[in-house]
Amino acid sequence: MSHVTTGGCLCGGLRYAAAGVPDNAGLCFCADCRKASGGAGIGFMGFSSSALTFSGAARQYVSKSARGSDAVRNFCPVCGSLVFGGIVGTDTDHTIYAGSLDDPAVFVPQIVIFNRDRPVWAPLPAGLSVFEAMPD
């Protein structure tokens, strides 16, 4: 049996389950992630869309990513919690936001992206690969 990571919004209306280990995990300090989270940045975990199941209603907010493509953030229309990124049924992978995890201990960041935008008051955990912008 593979490991399943679960999570969702504050009110429980928007949920997900991800099978297996994430393809990547890290911290993003870009301006979009700071504004969307209301904090220093966002912890994220990337999963293939085939590993994920979603339940409940989601609303989307679309902005331009650093690469110029659309960045789609999904949030609960009831409580407003930011839960995941990507378009279900279209994208081949999705970003799960670490703040939405049922068990926050499963989040083990490996990288930092957009470190150039990290607030001076936000410390970095030791041992992470740090990128000043989006890595290639």
Rank of each mutant, 00 (worst) to 15 (best):
residue 65 S to M: 10
residue 19 A to C: 13
residue 129 S to P: 05
residue 111 I to K: 13
residue 2 S to E: 11
residue 79 C to K: 12
residue 119 P to S: 00
residue 48 S to V: 00
residue 51 A to Y: 01
residue 8 G to W: 10
residue 115 N to K: 11
residue 20 G to S: 03
residue 41 G to T: 01
residue 43 G to L: 03
residue 131 F to V: 00
residue 39 G to T: 14
residue 49 S to G: 04
residue 25 A to P: 10
residue 30 C to Q: 07
residue 64 K to C: 05
residue 134 M to S: 14
residue 83 V to P: 00
residue 72 V to Q: 08
residue 82 L to I: 06
residue 99 G to L: 06
residue 63 S to M: 05
residue 77 P to D: 05
residue 47 F to Q: 05
residue 38 G to D: 06
residue 11 C to F: 05
residue 61 Y to R: 14
residue 78 V to I: 14
residue 36 A to S: 11
residue 113 I to Q: 13
residue 31 A to P: 10
residue 98 A to H: 03
residue 111 I to N: 12
residue 99 G to C: 04
residue 31 A to T: 15
residue 121 W to K: 11
residue 100 S to T: 10
residue 4 V to L: 11
residue 120 V to D: 14
residue 66 A to F: 06
residue 18 A to E: 09
residue 127 G to Y: 10
residue 36 A to D: 07
residue 13 G to E: 12
residue 15 R to M: 02
residue 104 P to S: 08
residue 76 C to L: 09
residue 61 Y to N: 11
residue 49 S to M: 10
residue 105 A to F: 05
residue 4 V to E: 10
residue 37 S to C: 07
residue 21 V to D: 14
residue 7 G to N: 02
residue 47 F to V: 05
residue 108 V to Y: 07
residue 35 K to T: 10
residue 7 G to H: 02
residue 12 G to D: 06
residue 51 A to D: 11
residue 84 F to A: 01
residue 46 G to F: 08
residue 115 N to M: 05
residue 108 V to K: 15
residue 88 V to C: 00
residue 56 G to A: 04
residue 87 I to L: 15
residue 90 T to K: 15
residue 95 T to W: 10
residue 117 D to G: 04
residue 130 V to W: 02
residue 62 V to Y: 09
residue 82 L to S: 08
residue 13 G to W: 09
residue 61 Y to Q: 12
residue 112 V to K: 00
residue 20 G to A: 13
residue 133 A to L: 14
residue 31 A to L: 12
residue 109 P to M: 11
residue 79 C to G: 04
residue 64 K to W: 08
residue 19 A to N: 15
residue 134 M to Q: 15
residue 123 P to M: 13
residue 46 G to D: 13
residue 33 C to K: 04
residue 45 M to T: 06
